[in-house]
Design a protein around this nucleic acid. Structure first.
Length: 117
DNA sequence: AGATTGACTGCAT
DNA sequence: CATGCAGCCAATC
């Protein structure tokens, strides 16, 4: 059978799978930026991370909500809604947002794989 | 093969 | 803090 690496219908894994793997490494109650993920994965830019996150299948086990932009804000993605859902999920994990809807990356920002706190 | 878009980043104004 | 511009690379048309 042709091994076509068919991941969830569309898109080949490879790069995506690598990004998902890093995303799964984000501890609960912490958030990482697209640039951070890209740096850990290597050979990939924040755009690709964002693109990969947009392609995350629902319930795939990837904490896509823990991935936000470098400004500590939640990006407004296609569809318009969902941004508030992401915030609710993060708050449920212990991440605190300020009145402007921003997260203090110096406190909740993930420092990297294996490095906790 | 070329043009367009995109859950980004960083710096300049 | 808002807006604009350049760099970046993969997916889509």
């Amino acid at each position: 059978m042709g091994d076509r690496e068919n991941v969830s219908g569309s898109a080949r894994g490879r790069l995506y799978e690598r990004i998902y793997d890093v995303a799964r490494g984000i501890p609960k109650g912490r958030v990482a930026t697209y640039g951070q993920i890209a740096a850990i994965v290597g050979k990939c830019t924040p755009r690709q991370v964002g693109y990969a996150m947009a392609a995350v299948p629902f319930g795939s086990g990837v904490p896509w909500q823990r991935v936000i932009n470098a400004r500590g804000t939640v990006s407004e993605r296609a569809g318009g809604d969902g941004r508030e859902v992401q915030r609710a999920l993060l708050e449920a994990e212990g991440v605190r947002f300020d009145d402007l809807g921003r997260v203090d990356l110096s406190v909740f920002g993930w420092r990297g794989p294996g490095l906790k706190r």
